[in-house]
Amino acid sequence: MMIKRKKIEEKIFKVLMVLATMTIAFALMLIIYSILYKGLPSLSWEMISQTPKGGFYFGKEGGILNAIIGSLYLSIGATFLAFIVGLPVALYINVHLVKRKKIVNAIRFFLDLLWGVPSIVYGAFGFSLMIYMGIRTSLLAGIITVAFLIIPIMIRAMDEVFKEVPRGLMEAAFSLGSTKSETAYKIFFRQCVPGVITAILLSLGRGIGDAASVMFTTGYTDHIPTSLTQPTATLPLSIFFQLSSPIPEVQNRAYASALVLTIIILIISLSARMISGKYQKNKINF
């Protein structure tokens, strides 16, 4: 009797577990399906190849090329900046500080904390910094803000890769007379290039998709920026603005823009997956 009741309990929970897991998979399919369903009809070549023409926000001609290019500029710039700061940090804690476990753990803890800071806080901070320094909303201000946002992500992602480099490899490099910095850049970095690329792609995806932090700092314009000091449009904000319009044509274009953004993100995350998958296969084992 008791055994039977136990079995039934386990059965019920197992069904619930499968249901929960299926719900998660279903949610993803539903999101992609509804974006496709709403966005595909309004998606056209014109949309992704032109900047907004006069009357675009009333449903007239034009496209969102300004936002696409703006987002790419912004995220590539921010990723580049984050890489310059992030790579040395990730290398430093894995090569120079390898014997100081406590310090390394404290830094990782810090980074995880920073990772949790909401992007709107970075945005607000970036804005007050801008005011303080007397800069106007611009691509550069956006790049700096987004870089702040993705630095922790990038470092932690690279850190996870460098952590896996076998200790023996480092010791071998030292015993051949390499300095710590040389070991870091020539051995760790080269050994981990695919992993580093994955980390970069991850940050890139984050940078393209984030809206809250750039709201304050990049401004918005219909033109493609030609210098760092000009304001720029971004895809998430363009979706957001178009969607808040009462005109159905404009709303439909918001859905199409959402589809464009989703496709860009999917391409980035799938290629990151492919590279990291390959990377695991080719990793040298010591």
Partner: peptide
């Protein structure tokens, strides 16, 4: 799911 931007 983790990579989909919040605006989406």
């Amino acid at each position: 799911l983790a990579g989909i931007p919040s605006v989406i």
